[in-house]
Nucleic acid binder design. Structure first.
Lengths: 357, 357
DNA sequence: TCCCTGCGGGAAAGGGCTTTCTCTGCGGTA
DNA sequence: TACCGCAGAGAAAGCCCTTTCCCGCAGGGA
């Protein structure tokens, strides 16, 4: 592997001059030497050693990102937003998948710190786990103490900059919608209990039902992995326990798609026999059939905001931006079926399309 | 930011000893000193500077990966395979999205080379572009000359190790299937013309039709972006030009999903009025309604193989592994509609389910 | 008692680059 | 003519580690 001094030797100049040419330093170099250096670079196919550069340079430019899994559409969208701003600012992103393993998350914080990232963004739900939260906060504090910037997306536990999707209100909107359609027997296909996202969304949902004088007993909730298969499986368990359900809320769209698969397999018509609500509005939601009624979160925007926070200069106080959730009505949620409607409180409404509440 | 010598000073030892303790060197250190060092590390929240380590250490361990876009399910699956092997071997992956921009691809080769990756994997279609191909090959050759390993996934142009999905046969299978179902008026929703993947799949398809005495005129092909929206748009153009079509082959599943959306919007029943075939069998293919009939590629396995090639010791000759495509029959392809069947050559078959050919 | 061995530890040499500092030589001013 | 200033180039000092090499010391064998 050719080094800078190889280039310098070949060009008959000092490494200092070669470096200046290659990096377009402000220090002037005569045209003749410049050309000799560039020729040497081309001949030797020289590529600077990034580690040596990063070591020698003082300023740090990369930004570290820890997500659950970039290929999960939820995070893919957020990452798209992060990328957009980072690219604009000429920053490189180092993206790490924690696969929702807290230990791996801690490791990645260290790893990224070791890589001298200028900032750190943690996206994705926090955990109901005191010990972990404390450890994480310690590590982040240590990092911030040395000038690192930190922002989280969708986590309560961090005290600094944060972008928070309004999960609770989202859950509330879902609940209100189903109540409005007359549903009483509502089941929930939930993500892992330990995730704050799960409990937040659930809390909003429960609040809506309670306001309507209905309830959400634990037996109508099934916890599973936050993905398609988890949703399919939880839906099956839910239906086995309670065949009378007229609606299912899935706490994210992946789970909702799994739910639809199970319902289809069991020959239950959506939304005629049973309604389904998703959460997140990931891109595929409009392409399943029937198109998924869901609670939209501004995913890309969340990424944009987080990266802006972290790259923005002068942050006197930690800033928390709450981004709103909104209901997207498509085709999976309908009025409670006639057979059970007698017991429902409010009049059913019919509609379809893509209007938002 | 604490450095190793800070730790050493605090522990009252030399940097050498501190380094040995921290890295678990084979050289023995007495328990007392070891503990003093570890205590200092904890107190200072010391994290080694990765760049300095990488610079000082000789062996390179990370592997660079260039894909079109990790959040595209096709590449997400491949990446999953890459990850699996890399993790087993304790390798870190650096993943870069080229977004199918050839220039960016070249840049990333340099970037990754600069980061001293032990190997480089390029996944995704090559381009019909001589100048670019030559440039890329030069860069790769320069990298290989310094001991780097290179493997490509789904590209013909590279002369070294390669994992090749059998796109041509896949296209052939799609064509044979539709012929068997009696279709004659077959439209193609294709990816960008400049991609070899597009032309390979198209070539196989054309071969199948030709063998059956049918043909695939250019006017029945529409080229668009290789994604959902591209598929939707190309399908619309195709239908506008030729409303008589009884089948559409989309050259990947994303496009197929876009095609389904367009057909749904136009009120055309799939597969009763028009059949749709996809390509790749990405996970969502089974969850759309009707479930997508498609040509499956062993995406995860492709990743596994490529990483194994590149990390495998002793490669005397460049190896090319061709991975087979297979047809997955689901619910979007059916016999040619009755109204047009009179003109069809072969008897229609009815079926459904998930059996593979 | 002396020498050799081996162990635990430190000194120092890189690893490849950036950047400050220094030096040389030139043109311009007093 | 003597001096100053400055442009352009090089020398060298880091950046933070790892690892080789070397040293001192203690214990064992002759």
């Amino acid at each position: 592997m050719a080094t800078l001094s190889d280039v310098a030797r070949r060009a008959g100049v000092s490494p200092a001059t070669a470096s200046r040419v290659i990096n377009g330093s402000s220090k002037p170099v005569t045209d003749e030497l410049r050309e000799r250096v560039l020729a040497a670079v081309a001949e030797l196919q020289y590529v600077p050693n990034a580690h040596a550069q990063l070591l020698a340079r003082s300023h740090r430019s990369a930004v570290g990102v820890i997500v659950h899994d970039v290929s999960d559409p939820y995070f893919a969208e957020i990452t798209r937003g992060l990328q957009r701003v980072a690219t604009d600012q000429g920053r490189l992103l180092m993206i790490c998948n924690s696969y929702r393993d807290p230990d791996r998350e801690l490791e990645y914080v260290e790893l990224l710190r070791g890589h001298q990232v200028a900032a750190l963004i943690l996206a994705g739900s926090g955990y109901h786990d005191e010990a972990f939260t404390r450890q994480l906060n310690e590590k982040l504090a240590a990092y911030e103490a040395t000038g690192g910037r930190v922002a989280v997306i969708g986590r309560h536990e961090h005290s600094g900059d944060a972008v928070m999707p309004d999960n609770r209100t989202g859950g509330y909107l879902a609940g209100r919608e189903l109540c409005g359609l007359g549903h009483r027997a509502i089941g929930v296909v939930a993500g892992p209990r330990i995730l704050t996202t799960t409990t937040d969304r659930l809390a909003g949902l429960r609040q809506a039902l309670t306001e309507q004088g209905r309830e959400l007993p634990e037996r109508r909730i099934r916890y599973a992995e936050f993905d398609r298969d988890g949703g399919a499986e939880a839906t099956a368990r839910l239906l086995d326990a309670d065949p009378e359900l007229t609606a299912i809320v899935a706490l994210n769209d992946s789970m909702a798609i799994g739910a639809l698969a199970t319902l289809r397999a069991r020959g239950l018509a959506v939304p005629q026999q049973i309604s389904v609500l998703g959460f997140d509005d990931m891109p595929i939601a409009r392409d399943v059939t029937p198109a998924l009624t869901t609670v939209r979160l501004p995913l890309v925007d969340m990424g944009v905001r987080a990266m802006s926070l972290v790259l923005g200069v002068g942050a006197p106080t930690p800033r928390v931006e709450v981004l709103p959730a909104e209901l997207v009505r498509r085709d999976t949620a309908g009025p409670v079926p006639l057979s059970t409607r007698a017991t429902a409180g409010s009049a059913p409404r019919a509609r379809r399309g893509d209007s938002t509440s």
